[in-house]
Design a protein around this nucleic acid. Structure first.
Lengths: 344, 344
DNA sequence: TTGTATGCGTTATCAG
DNA sequence: CTGATAACGCATACAA
């Protein structure tokens, strides 16, 4: 009933009348093994259909050659690109990628964190769930010498590696762009708690308004519970129904921005003439929708690569691991001006 | 310099003056251990910060509680939904998900297959790379008793579980829909080799034409090398520039369909009046683009769930593993009629 | 109900 | 350059 028994280095050893240790070393081209022997071992191994057992190998070092990736969701262009970036770097390094979705739930995040730990991954790359405020569940990784990198949605007060964009600056730039197009009443859609990227973006938005002496009107700032088309639709509608509707919207996500465009058109509000809109992320839809959505480029793939590279650097230098307690990599963002915000 | 040493069942045993085997059993609530002892063990384990080592546990059974997922890419709505479905089921079953991207390359697929094997995953869910014709690299899983399920892009001649939609029927239905809207010259965009889902869809398209006595015009069938907006644009342009351009396009993917809509509009060809278009997959963009793209629903999430369920069923019933050599689950598809194809 | 002993496949250490 | 052996952490067969 069982499948064929596995070929182990022991089998190879027996066949070649060598010690298992020699086989083990030969397979890894250890310098102390003669060329000839190495070749012989490799040849025989291939013939016998030998395949290493990463499990057994990892048991000694107590770590799998695996990077755990913990994200809110993966069905989002930005995040799947991020994974792609991680994957590319990991694959080259001979590591595999374990992916988990927190669905923006704190509870799930905590559980998955444990699962990752139980699997003894070498490193963890995480973007926090929207709900998450306390990040104590990550401490175990530090104590255990597991490389830890937070990306995009990072905790405020956790000393480790962060890969982010400057959300404040991006929000500021986006808002300023709308102002430069002549907008006077700029609305904003926000989400999450005070630890979230959306909070930062909002701060940037507020700063830009202040700098240009535009009054900050609370009714122009609406909140969504989740980033969905439906929620965004409601939010936009609310804005358009105001006594004094906005002439610009800074939507901190393209889903929100696209929704805004659609609702506006449905309501007969011309974009960008009557209402300029800028989104965030540069999702594929942003350049498909008509009018094209201006947006802020978010280097997702690059962020993934960078995160993974940090992990591997950290893994390589076992020495100075405790030297750096915190390091933040800021990646560049750019305002992509497209049709939805071109008034001038 | 090292992190704290790990707490093992041995440490717990020492602390409680019990045998490691008792601890091991107590942790899993083995019936032969007294309630009291179980509780005591669990409490102490928690206090000491014990976390199981899946590596060690798996080494005995020679399999990790992990499902390997091998896909062409993950940055595609259809595939990331599929993963989501797999993830959900796996998470409930206490399994983790290892994800790899073949980037539609045969070579990468073979390598990743090995990597999956080396990690001793319990099951593999795979959607084949576009390039792949030979699937011998999957045989090892069968021999090794690793549950194997192919999903969506499945091999022609491999006896194992398949989870698919009826691509022929879907292609037939989509084409028939266009015919019912009065189209006489229906174009088609195709891709991949004769083992691909696109081939099946094309066959369905051809069958529908034949059934309705529409002449099959080779110049109406164009081929793209990869499913990208750019490629699709070129293909559509080619069609529109024909002496006798088509009055309908069956695009076997929403990316292709969306591109077709855009190119048509740019060229001043009214959709659907002059050109009816239907896509495939029901990607998010299909209902965002204006006019909305008619499409064929592809139950991605469901396919993921089904694939995972098959894996776990198979894993549970170790007995009759060789009884079923091949089993195909066909999931339902539906024509979603939207603006882009509504002539009548 | 609990304890003892052993093995899973590999690698590191220490000998030769 | 190669060999013997212990160890990684856990789970099981067999004893008690």
């Amino acid at each position: 009933m069982k499948g064929k028994k596995e070929v182990t280095i022991y089998d190879i050893a027996k066949k070649l009348s060598l010690a298992t240790s020699t086989i083990s070393r030969g397979l890894k081209e250890h310098p102390t093994i003669s060329k000839k022997t190495v070749e012989k071992i490799k040849k025989t191994a291939a013939e016998m259909g030998y395949r290493p057992n990463n499990l057994a190998a990892s048991l000694r070092g107590n770590k799998m050659k695996t990077i755990g990736v913990l994200l809110p969701t993966i069905t989002q262009p930005f995040l799947s690109s991020l994974i792609s970036g991680i994957e590319e770097v990991a694959q080259k390094a001979g590591y595999t990628v374990l992916i988990m979705q927190s669905h923006d739930s704190y509870k799930e995040e905590v559980e998955l964190t444990q699962s990752l730990y139980d699997n003894r991954v070498s490193g963890v790359i995480c973007s926090l769930a929207m709900e998450t405020k306390n990040t104590d569940h990550f401490k175990r990784f530090i104590e255990n010498d597991t490389a830890l990198v937070f990306v995009d949605r990072v905790p405020k007060s956790f000393d480790t590696y962060h890969v982010v964009i400057d959300n404040f600056a991006a929000g500021y730039k986006a808002t300023k762009h709308l102002i430069s197009q002549g907008c006077k009443r700029i609305a904003h859609i926000t989400a999450g708690n005070e630890f979230s990227i959306y909070y930062e973006r909002k701060q940037g938005y507020l700063a830009a308004l202040e700098e240009h002496n535009l009054t900050i009107d609370d009714e122009l700032i609406v909140r969504v519970d989740r980033i969905t088309y439906k929620e965004a639709r409601k939010a936009t509608l609310k804005l358009l129904e105001l006594q004094k509707p906005p002439d610009g919207i800074f939507a901190p996500g393209d889903i929100l921005g696209v929704s805004a465009i659609q609702v506006a058109e449905q309501q007969g509000v011309k974009v960008p003439e009557k209402l300029a809109i800028i989104g965030f992320n540069n999702d594929p839809i942003s350049s498909i929708i008509d009018p094209n959505l201006s947006t802020v480029s978010h280097p997702a793939f690059k962020m993934g690569q960078t995160s993974a590279e940090i992990i591997f650097n950290r893994l390589r230098n076992t020495k100075n691991k405790s030297d750096i307690v915190k390091q933040i990599a800021f990646l560049n963002t750019e305002i992509l001006v497209r049709e939805s915000s071109k008034k001038s």
